[in-house]
Amino acid sequence: MDSKGDFLLADALLSSRFLLGTAGYPSPQVLRESITAAGAQVVTLGLKRQLAAGAADNGFIEIIRASGVRLLPNTAGCRSAREAVTLAHMARELLDTAWIKLEVVGDEHTLQPDPWELLEAASQLVKDGFEVFPYCTDDLVSAQRLCDAGCRILMPWGAPIGSGQGLINPWALRTLRARLPDITLIVDAGIGRPSHATQAMELGFDAVLLNSAVAQAADPVSMAHAFRLAIESGRLGYRSGLLAPQDFAAATTPVGGRPFEI
């Protein structure tokens, strides 16, 4: 059994289930090496108001474009559907992709997505021909509404962005997987350790998207590799059939009772 398998993301056939964010790396070179170590075939980008013509970004965007990976721009910073729709159109023109990671923040403390604005924006963008990757909570009914609006991919949070808490509500994520078997599910946000990513994959999620846990590691390149292995391991474990937990012991060595009692 192949630990990677073939992963159909929208209309792209990929081998990697690791989507990597590009923010916060110490240098463009470390970012480039991290993308390679991760084996990532999709990376996320943002958009920002330009302050001056030719304003330098120290070469990060050139590095990302040169890496040959697919680009998944986001609508980070948007607080309304209108803002997000406008920014998505800008991203499509700038980066020549119809993929959009749709973010609409509803709470400043947790950066929790606003489910109403998110749904409104997703509905419009699907009509406008986008492949919408909504960053959403783990709420089942909100997720179903996004699917009703035409989203084929959902990206529920594991925990608030950048918190590194891991999967704070595995039950909700497990429920999403069970209730939305035909939707591509990607855990996005909150992943802090490779074991968190493994857990997400063992729940049957299709992929993991993370940024801070790699970018802020003491050694981002090694951490990218660690997450790659963790994601592949979790996927292989899921496909292989995980042992169901139970409340009683079950002897593994087939001794047939006590060794000296006949």
Binding site: T22, L45, L47, R49, F60
Partner: peptide, 10 residues
Amino acid sequence: ITCFQAIVGG
């Protein structure tokens, strides 16, 4: 008028 450019992002 607002002008946007691509930047790194998560």
